[in-house]
């Protein structure tokens, strides 16, 4: 029952958002924005073009590389900073400061180091995503309740059993929250990177369409990204909720 009602609520919300969009369109006219119907139609037009799939592939592979770096790097550094108290305490304010820095300011530096193309985009995505993953993981490891470790010793678990049977499950919910935040910010970083540092990919298509005043393409690509990001996030959020409910 609740699942059906929830799906209904989501559908209703999307319908209201589409109605607001249509209203804006009627108010502002097609110079500034495209109507919902046109935009959806244009998504399918784009999807029929082989070259468009090339851009999607480019963005997805840059995103995949950046995500692997953000997640693996963030969890690795986070575990170290969480387990080693002094390092963690020294690093925490620095990480928080870095987190709220407008990293987009660094784009010329990234370009000068990596040049135009894939590596720059990946680097851009990774610098956005890695910090939140690190902060969440560090806090997860730091906040493991000491009684769990004692319980593992009383139960005579081997170090490996302690990690897989106690420490990993205890930290998992927080780490997954971090991965979720990292996912969104990595995607944001890759797209910004494509806007400034690339001639390929969906971010480039958006910025190019803005330059050409091609409102339909700009909105169609944005809608596509919106759907992808919201769907992926809904999945990660559900996972996150389920893990947190257990604790």
């Amino acid at each position: 029952m609740t699942a059906i009602r929830r799906a209904f609520d989501v559908a209703l919300l999307l319908a209201v958002l589409a109605a607001i969009w249509q209203g804006l369109y009627m108010f502002a006219g097609d110079v500034a924005i495209a109507s919902p119907a046109e935009t959806v139609r244009h998504v399918f037009v784009l999807l029929e073009r082989p070259r468009f799939w090339g851009h999607i592939e480019e963005t997805l592979s840059a995103f995949a590389y950046a995500l692997v770096i953000s997640w693996a790097g963030g969890v690795g550094i986070g575990v170290w900073l969480g387990a080693h108290r002094l390092s963690g305490e020294v690093a925490e304010p620095i990480l928080v400061a870095l987190y709220s820095l407008p990293k987009v300011t660094l784009y010329p530096l990234i370009l000068l180091v990596f040049g135009l193309g894939m590596p720059a985009k990946v680097a851009f995505g990774a610098i956005h995503g890695i910090i939140p993953v690190t902060i969440f993981t560090m806090n997860a490891v730091r906040n493991i309740r000491p009684v769990y470790v004692k319980a593992a010793r009383v139960l005579r678990l081997s170090p490996q059993q302690t990690v897989t049977g106690v420490l990993l499950p205890a930290t998992l919910p927080e780490v997954v929250s971090g991965l979720r935040v990292g996912f969104s910010l990595t995607l944001l970083g890759v797209l910004i990177g494509e806007m400034f540092a690339s001639k390929r990919g969906l971010g480039f298509l958006i910025i190019n369409a803005i330059g050409l005043n091609d409102v339909e393409t700009m909105m169609a690509v944005t809608l596509l990204l919106f759907v992808f990001a919201a769907a992926a996030n809904a999945f990660l959020l559900a996972l996150d909720r389920r893990l947190h409910k257990r604790v």
Partner: peptide, 14 residues
Amino acid sequence: LRRAADPLLATYYA
């Protein structure tokens, strides 16, 4: 409304 909007909020909190 909040439950329905949750995934959107989580996606766009930048």
